[in-house]
Design a protein around this nucleic acid. Structure first.
Lengths: 222, 222
DNA sequence: TAATGTGAATCGTTTCACAGCG
DNA sequence: CGCTGTGAAACGATTCACATTA
């Protein structure tokens, strides 16, 4: 029992389910007892239809006519998506961004334990004050292996990103969060998520350009 | 002429085109003269087919039989996606993350000028050393309006995220990059991109759980 | 021959519409 | 009657297959 979803949940649904999950956490905190798909949709900006379908991928859980029980739905999603599972993480690159992440409490509160930080500069390792154990970068794969770290956060300069990824993968990392603007080559089964500020700015910029183009068109033809 | 793409470029294509663009920048730097769709695909982890279709949304530009000229393709994409356009940005929330962003050179190098930083703590405004002009948070909408800032980066604690977004939107911001884990309510035409570390960790964790589930299944049935 | 550009087929996701249930 | 859960239709993106051209 309590088996995880082998169910095929579409990726976009997964993203929405996680958003729903976190909203439910918040509602639980605020002592809200029940909620409907349309209410969830209104707050999160999704369609109610979509939410019902997303939720239903994980099996039935709602009350016909009476919406969802907040606590029950939260547990339901959490169990099915394996969010009850704690995972170890590490941060590579201890510049401003990296140290910010090292000390980011939200990670721990959500079951992600940062158990190691790495940097190539010994100097930095000695001057940073943190409760997380720090290591020189050349020990990455060794430490990842020894500690059973599953998630690696890359916060190094662009040039060092691929090498960092390689070391993490050597150590048996299973997922990477990449803050550098470098596109990492997919390798083994390692999952990669890119959190690239400049890239996101470019996407925004492009969408804005399109909007401007559309406006011009409407104005011209209107 | 030189009109921006009113063309309907699918969102996923857009993301890939931007990745291609940045790779081309790098290749230009390395004096590579020409490149084929399959080479681009190999490096970026996309299928060659896909890349050709993406590029062709913007019109013909390649040489039949001889691939793409690096410089020409780069310019082609850049012009069509409006990447030649410079845009002003601001950062709200000057904790570790916010100050990291304030001083992140890559933004400027890619045409995104950070022209203001905001924080609710006057103390912080006085102690941070940066070349960017700093303001108290209550002046957000005023400064955004006055300076014509188009992109706002939110790096405040979760609780303050929605209020920050509201102020930015009041000032006429056009796009928001949200580093906080709060789902911002869509409003007006403002585009929102979420860069949420905890959320991404959860996505990874879920994908890993699924993988584990699949493994168990294979092992059990194999 | 080698690679692009593109209609057509396929695949996956979202939306719709409504049956089913409290 | 209100809201969930879900097949079916509609939509959008990817992949395929090939005609096209230096």
């Amino acid at each position: 029992m309590r088996r995880n979803a082998q169910i095929n949940v579409p990726h976009p649904s997964l993203t929405r389910l996680l958003a729903i999950y976190r909203l439910l956490e918040q509602m639980e905190h605020e002592n809200v007892k029940s909620v409907s798909s349309s209410e969830l949709g209104r707050v999160l900006g999704f369609k109610a239809d979509s939410i019902r379908k997303d939720v239903s991928y994980l099996g039935e859980v709602g009350n016909f006519g009476g919406g969802y029980e907040v606590l029950k739905l939260k547990e339901h999603i959490g169990t099915n998506l394996g969010l009850d599972r704690k995972r170890k993480a590490c941060v590579v690159g201890l510049g401003r961004l990296g140290t910010a992440i090292l000390n980011y409490d939200d990670l721990g509160e959500n079951g992600f334990l940062v158990v190691a930080g790495f940097d190539s500069s010994i100097n930095k390792l000695e001057t940073i004050t943190t409760s997380v154990e720090l290591f020189p970068a050349h020990e990455i794969s060794e430490v990842v292996k020894k500690k059973g770290i599953e998630i690696g956060v890359i916060a190094v300069p662009s040039k060092a990103a691929q090498e960092t990824a390689d070391r993490l993968i050597d150590g048996g990392i299973r997922g990477i969060i990449n803050f550098s603007p470098t596109a990492l080559k997919p390798k083994n089964n390692v999952m990669i998520r890119n959190l690239d500020l400049v890239g996101e700015c470019m996407i925004l910029s492009t969408l804005l350009s399109f909007e401007e183009g559309a406006d011009r068109n409407e104005t011209a033809s209107g």
